[in-house]
Design a protein around this nucleic acid. Sequence first.
DNA 1: CGCTTGACGATACTCAGTCTCATTTGCTAG
DNA 2: CTAGCAAATGAGACTGAGTATCGTCAAGCG
Lengths: 146, 146
Amino acid sequence: MTDIPTIVTVLDRAGYRLTEPRRKVAGLISRRDGHFSAADLVDDARERRLDVGRATIFRALELFTELNAVERVDLPNGDHAYVECEPVHHHHVICSQCARTTEVEACGMPAVARDVGRRTGFKIQSHRLELFGICPECQAANSRHG
Amino acid sequence: MTDIPTIVTVLDRAGYRLTEPRRKVAGLISRRDGHFSAADLVDDARERRLDVGRATIFRALELFTELNAVERVDLPNGDHAYVECEPVHHHHVICSQCARTTEVEACGMPAVARDVGRRTGFKIQSHRLELFGICPECQAANSRHG
DNA sequence: CGCTTGACGATACTCAGTCTCATTTGCTAG
DNA sequence: CTAGCAAATGAGACTGAGTATCGTCAAGCG
Ligand SMILES: [Zn+2]
Ligand SMILES: [Zn+2]
Ligand SMILES: [Zn+2]
Ligand SMILES: [Zn+2]
């Protein structure tokens, strides 16, 4: 339910083959809401009898990640998950209850990074910022019925 | 080479048994410099013929992490690693060349988190921030010989 | 159309991390 | 100091994510 330039479009623009399995995986991803794991997609595929090989799902995820159509996030518990997203620098706010995520663009991090660089002597190259909390929907639901 | 309250001390204060295997693992950790994985410790132990079971190393790491004597970080490539560190909120600056890490305390994040919360409606509970770059030592080494 | 080459899927494999369970050991109460 | 118990250990089986191999297939192009 995002109107991100569809993964298929990104694939095409990058000159990759628009194969049936890739379309299927892209489809599975776009009908997901929050973050998901490779295993989730494998299950989804089996449920809908899409007949996509396990290895293919991993390969597709890897490729989509390279093309920045999808991003990998690390959950607080150490699990890896993926999120469909836009190909520009941003971070994710992740609901620890329902897994829904939102992108945040202006991260205010350049300033922090500069400051840290000055104090530690490191030449900062990149950063990862993930915020965890409760999304508006879950907050509402929680206050409604306990 | 940190003078963090030794892991053994932390263990003791928290009321856990000071077993020989735990001492050994703590020893291995403290003589490490940058981040390390469970597998690294397993190798170290084997090399120095310390005779500590694999499972025990995992268990020790888990416990030390719970006690905040050690923290888990996620490398950009998706690998998991650990770093010995102080039990207060802070973040790590990680050298992508030599794995050395430094802790940063004032992270300036509360402001960012508040802002993000306001814009997204999320109730922010926690955040993870990791900075990657080149440490001063590596910068010096690099400029010296290429 | 047919070719070429990249992609696919089945399957075997690796490796991190967990679990089980019989044995050992740190601790403490006596 | 010692006995006894709970907690911790280690060997090894197990799980599940992710990767590698390789023969087959089909997307895209002329
Ligand atoms: Zn939610
Ligand atoms: Zn940022
Ligand atoms: Zn370095
Ligand atoms: Zn912070």
